[in-house]
Nucleic acid binder design. Structure first.
Length: 100
DNA sequence: CAATTGACGTAGT
DNA sequence: CACTACGCCAATT
C-alpha cells in the first residue's frame, strides 16, 4: 500500500463532527514526519466526494490551505455545520480531534 | 532528472 | 505568544 493510499484511507474514516491533524494522519500512515506531504496529497485530492479533506487541520487546530471555493472561510463553515467545536478561528482539538 | 514549492511540525529564542 | 530555523515528504516545474 502506497503512503498516499494509506493517507486517503485514514481520512475516509474520519467521522462527521470530528477532525484530525496532518501530523496525526502522517503518523498513522507510517511516516510521522510526512505531515507536509499529507497537505500536498490533499491538494492532489483525487476524490473530494470520498475524501473529507476539510476535516484535516494543523496540529494547533488552525485551518490552513483548502484550495476549494471559499477557502478557509468555507472550510470553517462546513466544520461548524458538522458540529466541530471552534474557539475563534481555531478548532478545539481537545474535544473535536478523533485521537486525543 | 534536479530544483522548487508548500494544505506541516517541533524546538529554540 | 510571535518569529525563526531546520527537517521531512510528495507533487510540480
Amino acid at each position: 500500500m502506497d503512503f498516499k493510499n494509506k493517507v486517503y484511507s485514514i481520512i475516509e474514516r474520519v467521522p462527521k463532527g470530528k477532525v484530525t491533524t496532518y501530523g496525526q494522519v502522517a503518523r498513522l500512515a507510517g511516516n510521522s514526519k510526512a505531515a507536509r506531504a499529507v497537505g500536498a496529497l490533499m491538494k492532489n485530492n483525487p476524490d473530494t466526494k470520498r475524501i473529507p479533506c476539510h476535516r484535516v487541520v494543523s496540529s494547533k487546530g488552525k485551518l490552513t490551505g483548502f484550495s476549494a471555493k471559499g477557502g478557509i472561510e468555507k472550510k470553517k463553515e462546513m466544520l461548524l455545520d458538522e458540529g466541530v467545536n471552534f474557539v475563534g478561528d481555531i478548532v478545539d482539538l481537545s474535544r473535536s480531534q478523533i485521537i486525543k
